[in-house]
């Protein structure tokens, strides 16, 4: 029961932070609030016994991405641009779409098995084999690591390649790692020399 009420408290906190993010116009405050949002989600994952996910969320969401956002923010104005409110029709249409999508999600969530239900489809397929084998046969107590790096090693390979490609993309776009950027530089140097 304590877990349930802690989760409710954390969820209320998340909604509160979300409200602040929507309300505030100062980008610096928004970035810091987003870091706080990640930290609260990490606390929620710990509460749900998903420590590995919580660890990642705290390190990536609350840590690195806050710093990256701050670094990127240096090229933006300090204030968010205020847009004039739309017509009554667009407001109502947006409201209907939001409420409709929310209702669909709630309806789908009702059908989900309860948290920790041993008879949930996700728990009865291959999970029992992983849980039994990892400790006794492979002698690796952390099943999350076994699943991530061994049983689902191919997926993780794909993930690593995705991270690699994303990093490469940013390098090409922002750091001038392209051939055109270099040749432009060479051309301008040549002009300077003449």
């Amino acid at each position: 029961m304590a877990v349930f009420w802690t989760n409710i408290l954390l969820l209320v906190l998340l909604v509160f932070i979300l409200g602040l993010v929507i309300k505030t116009r100062r980008l610096f405050a928004v970035v810091i609030l987003a870091g706080g949002y990640s930290l609260v989600s990490a606390a929620m994952f710990v509460n749900l016994d998903a420590v590995d996910v919580a660890f990642t969320e705290a390190a990536v969401g609350a840590g690195i991405s806050t710093v990256l956002f701050l670094a990127a923010m240096a090229y933006l104005p300090a204030q968010e641009k205020t847009t004039r409110p739309g017509s009554a029709f667009t407001t109502i249409a947006a409201l209907v779409i939001c409420v409709g999508a929310g209702l669909l999600l709630v309806m789908a969530a009702i059908e989900l098995p309860a948290i920790g239900d041993p008879n949930a489809p996700a728990q009865i397929h291959v999970a029992p084999r992983y849980l039994e084998e990892s400790g006794s046969f492979l002698h690796i107590p952390n099943v999350v690591t076994t699943v991530l790096a061994s049983y689902r090693g191919f997926d993780t390979f794909g993930e690593t390649v995705v991270v690699f490609t994303a990093g490469l993309g940013v390098l090409v776009l922002l750091s001038g790692f392209t051939r055109t950027a270099r040749s432009t530089k060479r051309d301008s140097e040549g002009e300077d020399g003449q």
């Binding site: 690195i64 710093v67 990256l68 670094a71 990127a72 240096a74 090229y75 991270v163 690699f164 994303a166 990093g167 940013v170 390098l171 776009l173 922002l174 750091s175 001038g176 790692f177 392209t178 950027a181 270099r182 432009t184 530089k185």
Partner: peptide, 20 residues
């Protein structure tokens, strides 16, 4: 990747005018 992202964003204005 994290280091590259940080340096790409933090050093963006310099690299844009001093590419490569």
């Amino acid at each position: 990747v994290m280091l590259a992202l940080f340096h790409a964003f933090a050093g963006f204005s310099e690299s844009r005018f001093d590419a490569g």
